[in-house]
């Protein structure tokens, strides 16, 4: 196991940031911690990177205890905090060299690991980090986190506030790192990124809702979902919420994801009801559940 978390709890004053969290990340796995802001993701990352001490429970990272062996962990993990944490007044090159030396490594030594990523920012190596675009900062931060060939990589919300193009590129990079044998724990508030992980844990308000492979999690959605569409989104949602048999109504892209309380639900009945309410172009069709549907179901 690369990461083992057993019954970890952590509170700040009267806020329970983490409640009895347990999970494991296998060697070479890309594991996603999926949940909104304030779910407790950052606290968990800080406990695992030895920056915080949990109130209860224990955790190991690549075989080392997070409290007793904190020094060994600090040598063996790469950490990219949620906030961009590099020196803005240093250039790309100086940042990399600095992190290389404090980890007793050098840029050349682990060429194979960061080369692919570094090549993309190399043309700007004389530019100060403060003047880079969001996507480039993120790549630089990843390079810095990788500079000492860590066995485990911790990435706390690396894609927050980054545009979809940079996000896609970033996930492609993570996939390639994974193939080189690095275990990766990554957190994200974007539910659509869950599908890119080997396994995920859904986390909300300090509680772990479910841990599994994304496909399995989706498969276990308890209800049958329907896509509903009509000419006016606002009135559609309103009327669906007034429908006595509705179980859940959530806008989803151009559709509304609708689940019914009854087992023997007939879509035609709903269409009739909606038309009666003055809506037109009504469409009701079966839909596939997504991670987001599961999350909302579990967090209800």
């Amino acid at each position: 196991m690369s990461i083992t978390v057993r019954n970890i709890s952590k509170s700040y004053k009267d806020v329970k940031a983490l409640q009895n969290i347990s999970f494991e990340v296998k060697k070479g796995e890309l594991f996603g911690l999926i949940g909104p802001d304030g779910a407790g993701k950052t606290s968990l990352f800080r406990i695992l990177t030895t920056l915080l001490i949990a109130d209860e429970g224990e955790a190991e990272v690549s075989g080392f205890d997070v409290i007793k062996d904190y020094k060994s962990i600090r040598k063996n993990v790469g950490y990219m905090p949620g906030k961009f944490s590099l020196y803005q007044d240093l250039t790309i090159e100086e940042n990399l060299n600095f992190f290389a030396t404090i980890f007793g490594s050098s840029l050349e030594e682990n060429d194979d690991l960061i080369k692919e990523i570094y090549i993309q920012i190399e043309p700007f190596k004389k530019r100060r980090a403060g003047q880079l675009s969001g996507g480039m900062k993120q790549k630089l931060a990843l390079c810095c986190a990788l500079i000492h060939k860590p066995k485990v990589l911790f990435l706390d919300e690396p894609t927050t506030g980054v545009d979809p193009v940079s996000r896609k590129e970033f996930w492609e990079m993570l996939k390639r790192l994974q193939q080189k044998g690095i275990s990766i724990l990554v957190s994200t508030p974007y539910m659509d990124e869950a599908a890119l992980c080997d396994r995920i844990a859904l986390i909300d308000s300090g509680r772990l809702l479910q841990t599994d492979r994304p496909q399995e999690i989706v498969k276990h959605y308890p209800k049958t979902l329907f896509n509903v569409r009509a000419n006016s989104m606002f009135h559609l949602i309103k009327n669906l919420k007034d429908y006595p048999f509705q179980y859940s109504v959530f806008p989803f892209g151009e559709f509304v994801h609708y689940a019914d309380k009854r087992e023997d639900f007939e879509p035609d009945e709903l269409i009739e009801y909606l038309i009666e309410k003055g809506l037109s172009d009504v469409l009701v069709e079966k839909a596939e559940a997504t991670i987001e549907d599961v999350f909302m179901e579990l967090a209800r």
Binding site: T50, K71, R74, Y79, P81, S85, F103, G104
Partner: peptide
């Protein structure tokens, strides 16, 4: 936030 990274270093 750079202190965080310095702490998580040897």
């Amino acid at each position: 936030g750079t202190m965080e990274i310095l702490l998580v270093s040897p």
